[in-house]
Structure formats: structure tokens, C-alpha cells
């Protein structure tokens, strides 16, 4: 199976750099993070679109806002996205989703079952495959061996694919003082269809954080190289770089990934 290279798109301010990346042969698709600004049309990017969202609280015991799910469904449908990326998250504690920040659920059997139920309903609502992703982890799971085991179980229970966010995974392992390879063997590798990669930074308190304005460190690229060879179902690698991040670094990150994922693979 060929592996495509793409980049995350959030708003029209990024259109210029996407057009240039396409001209240079650096992107095969755009991963659009729905919902998007009302006036925006990712169709103008003139590349295939993979739908993603971080706005549905898939693990929430308070439910999922139908309005948000409809916006995602419409976007995915218009783009004929092969799957919809969803985060295993809470977002808040109100029926609408609230707060808007990615908040990891408590990793317990109870919230695994809630997540499985929510995602089952979302899949039915979307009538489209779902791929599940974890956020960076700071606090150790209390009711599960690890968040990777939690992800694996929810993916199996809902017959969902997995987005392995390599950066989030490495941040979690650093923050929880685990081996860099920890947790990979918990995942059903044949369910991993996509990788996310981005930069990361260490805070003054020693903990590591996602940093989409930075380039990924070398070890992240090395992991991607191995995954591109060894993951049997891998279809897409998405570079996440903020629209207000340095434009040269956007191309530099993609160029380095393009060496790993040559265009003739597509």
C-alpha cells in the first residue's frame, strides 16, 4: 500500500504555503481540521482531503454535540475523505462539549466503555470509517496499564483505525519516564492507517509539550522512517505545522519527510 504525505490545514491563511508545497511536490493531500471557518473552502487547495477533528468529546459521559458532528460529517462527505480522524478526549464537562481544550479522559474501564459507545454512534452518524488518536499525556493513567492499551481496546471494540501521533506518543513516554518504545506493542499495528508528526518542546518544569510552530526532532523522523517500512496498513503521514509558524520550516519539514516517503510511492 502506498503512503501519502500531507499537512494539516486549519484556515485559509495557509493556502499560499499549501499551493507552494504542492508546486514543489511536497504534499499529496491536506488534512483539514473541521469545523473550519465558514467562508473557507478546502476544495480550492486542489488536493485530496482527509477529514480530521479535535472538536468532538468522544470519551465524554456528557455526550457529543450534534451540531459539531454535522459540520464534520458534511466536510468529510464533501471531500470524500477515506476516514475521519477523531481524538480520544473530553474537551470539558458540559453537554455541548464546552471549554474546547483537549482534555485526556481518565483512562479507566468505565470511560473506555463510554468512548466505545460514543464512537459507535459517531460511526453510524458519519457512515464513514473513524481513525482514533491520543493527545499528549502528562498524568499517568490510573485505571489502565497505559493510554496506548486504552486506545487499542477502544479501536478493537469499535472496529476503528488508529492515527499514531508519533510526537504525542514520545511526549507521553518522556513525561511519564517510560522507554521511548513503550506502548507500541500494545497497539494492533494493522489498524494504524496514519501518522501525525510535529515539533515538541520542553517546558521550564521539565515536562514536554506539543509545539506545532517547531520542526520535529531527529528521532521523530527516524521513527517515521521505520514505520513507513513496517506498518502494513499505513496510508498517510501528516505533518502538523502552525499556519503562523516559519514558512521555510514548513517546507523543510515536508522535504525531509518526502525523502522518507518518495512521491513515486503514491
Amino acid at each position: 500500500m502506498s503512503v501519502m504525505l500531507g499537512a494539516r490545514w486549519d484556515e485559509p491563511d495557509q493556502n499560499g504555503r499549501f499551493a507552494e508545497a504542492k508546486r514543489r511536490g511536497l504534499i499529496d493531500y491536506a488534512e483539514v481540521n473541521f469545523p473550519i471557518p465558514f467562508a473557507a473552502d478546502p476544495g480550492t487547495l486542489d488536493v485530496p482531503v482527509i477529514a480530521h477533528t479535535s472538536s468532538n468529546p468522544t470519551c465524554s459521559a456528557h455526550g457529543i454535540n450534534r451540531t459539531v458532528a454535522e459540520l464534520v460529517r458534511t466536510g468529510a462527505s464533501n471531500a470524500d475523505s477515506p476516514w475521519i480522524g477523531e481524538h480520544l478526549t473530553w474537551l470539558g464537562s458540559a453537554p455541548s462539549g464546552s471549554l474546547g481544550y483537549q482534555i485526556n479522559p481518565l483512562f479507566t474501564a468505565e470511560f473506555r466503555d463510554i468512548a466505545a459507545s460514543n464512537i459507535g454512534k459517531l460511526k453510524e452518524f458519519y457512515d464513514r470509517p473513524i481513525a482514533l488518536e491520543l493527545s499528549p499525556i502528562y498524568t499517568a493513567p490510573t485505571g489502565y496499564e497505559s493510554e496506548m492499551h486504552f486506545l487499542a481496546d477502544v479501536a478493537e471494540m469499535t472496529d476503528s483505525s488508529i492515527i499514531l501521533d508519533v510526537t504525542h506518543w514520545q511526549i507521553a513516554n518522556r513525561n511519564l519516564n517510560r522507554d521511548p518504545q513503550f506502548g507500541l506493542d500494545a497497539l494492533p499495528v494493522d489498524r494504524i492507517v496514519e501518522l501525525h508528526i510535529a515539533g515538541m518542546r520542553q517546558g521550564s518544569d521539565g515536562f514536554w509539550h506539543d509545539a506545532h510552530q517547531l520542526l520535529p526532532p531527529d528521532d521523530i523522523y527516524n521513527l517515521v522512517k521505520g514505520f513507513a517500512r513496517n506498518l502494513p496498513s499505513l496510508r498517510a503521514v501528516t505533518f502538523e505545522h502552525r499556519g503562523d509558524g516559519p514558512e521555510k520550516e514548513f517546507y523543510a519539514g515536508l522535504e525531509r519527510l518526502r525523502h522518507i516517503l518518495p512521491p513515486n510511492d503514491v
Binding site: 469545523p35 465558514f38 472538536s55 454535540n65 459539531v68 459540520l71 462539549g97
Partner: peptide, 8 residues
Amino acid sequence: PYGVGPGY
């Protein structure tokens, strides 16, 4: 602003 709804 993106239509996500109140609270976000």
C-alpha cells in the same frame, strides 16, 4: 466563530 457552538 467556526460554528462549533457555545462553550468552545
